[in-house]
């Protein structure tokens, strides 16, 4: 059995605000195997992006990993010094940011930004680095890469820029890529192009990928496993098709039902009532309780994560049992 590329154990990330400690990531556990794509799904504020930055050890102040382990190939990133972390970032673990318009430095040319990344990690000549950068651009489907290298970011479209960022991520063959909503800021057509490109690029590589998104349909096409996050916790985890077919957590069910589809044409779209909770005053009990159609008295205590077999876990007192219940999500 192969060892996971990334193994996150009981990760807790907090922001010390004036109003108290805000627990943005709460006891999160998951593994990513080589060649595996893990989708992390959730609404904004669910802690999925913070999870990504916690793994990179790049949290903005006052955010801090309070406890837990982040093992990259068995090495705990939380215990590494700044230099060792710097050597890993961009080389063994790469990240793709959400908004390609803001990601690349506007006053530096593409070649500068690509070559500096290579030179930070590899002892190669400037010319070799340029060749590597050019190849990487060609690989992500950028036409005439040699010329493109000499342009500034603002001379490219958003989709092009995101391809550049993907090229930079793949360039040094990392073990793990964390993609934080990389297609959210793009047009739908560009989005699907990028997704297609991603699938193609991943197929013959052995790298792990974490794809953070709020869009279940993206996950359905790309990921092998899905973690659904709510209020900083993973509320449900499992293989993608299984989980989407038979969601056990009422929140997952709500997310699936709120996707518009042909079947629901003409009907009112279902939605999850209420709003995402304020992490500062969650109170005791299940955080989804106020919006949950299946809430009962027992939900006043916080549910534990329990395994339901087939590599699936759910964190709910009243999970949806198979075949028994599909009225759960009505209104």
């Amino acid at each position: 059995m192969t060892a996971p590329v990334l193994s996150v154990r009981d990760l807790v990330t907090e922001f010390d605000t004036r109003a108290g400690a805000l627990r943005a990531v709460n006891n999160v556990c998951f593994d990513v195997m080589p060649g595996e794509v893990l989708g992390i799904v959730g609404e904004s504020g669910s802690g999925k992006t913070i999870t990504g930055f916690s793994i990179m050890q790049l949290l903005d102040k006052p955010g801090k990993v309070k406890s837990g382990e982040i093992l990259l190939n068995g090495k705990d990133l939380g215990r590494l010094g700044d230099t060792e972390l710097r050597q890993l970032r961009g080389d063994r673990i790469a990240m793709i940011f959400q908004d390609p318009m803001m990601t690349l430095n506007p006053v530096l040319r593409i070649d500068t930004q690509m070559i500096e990344t290579i030179l930070a990690h590899r002892k190669v000549s400037h010319a070799e680095a340029r060749q590597l950068a050019e190849d990487a651009l060609a690989q992500v489907g950028i036409p005439s890469p040699a010329e493109r290298l000499k342009t500034y970011p603002h001379e490219m479209s958003g989709g092009m820029r995101q391809r550049v960022v993907i090229a930079i991520a793949l360039m040094l063959e990392p073990d793990l890529i964390i993609a934080d909503e990389p297609t959210t800021a793009l047009d739908v057509t560009i989005q699907s192009q990028i997704l297609f490109e991603m699938q193609r690029l991943l197929s013959n590589r052995n790298m792990g990928l974490i794809w953070i998104t709020h869009d279940l349909t993206v996950v359905a096409g790309l990921a092998h496993k899905v973690a659904v996050m709510y209020a900083g916790r993973i509320v449900e985890f499992g293989p993608v098709s299984d989980l989407l077919d038979r969601p056990a957590h009422p929140y997952t069910r709500g997310l699936i039902d709120s996707i518009p589809s042909n079947a629901s044409h003409g009907k009112r779209l279902t939605q999850i009532p209420g709003m995402t909770p304020n992490l500062l005053n969650l109170g005791k009990g299940c955080p989804f309780r106020p919006r949950c159609p299946r809430a009962s008295d027992i939900c006043a205590s916080d549910p534990e994560t329990s395994s339901t077999g087939d590599g699936r876990t759910v964190r709910c007192h009243n999970p949806i049992e198979e075949g028994l219940d599909d009225t759960a999500s009505a209104t």
């Binding site: 790049l58 700044d82 710097r86 961009g90 790469a94 506007p106 500096e116 990690h121």
Partner: peptide, 13 residues
């Protein structure tokens, strides 16, 4: 973001 991204690429401080 681009400064954070530069850090994420492992560039030296």
């Amino acid at each position: 973001d681009y400064v954070k991204y530069a850090r994420a690429r492992g560039l030296s401080e």
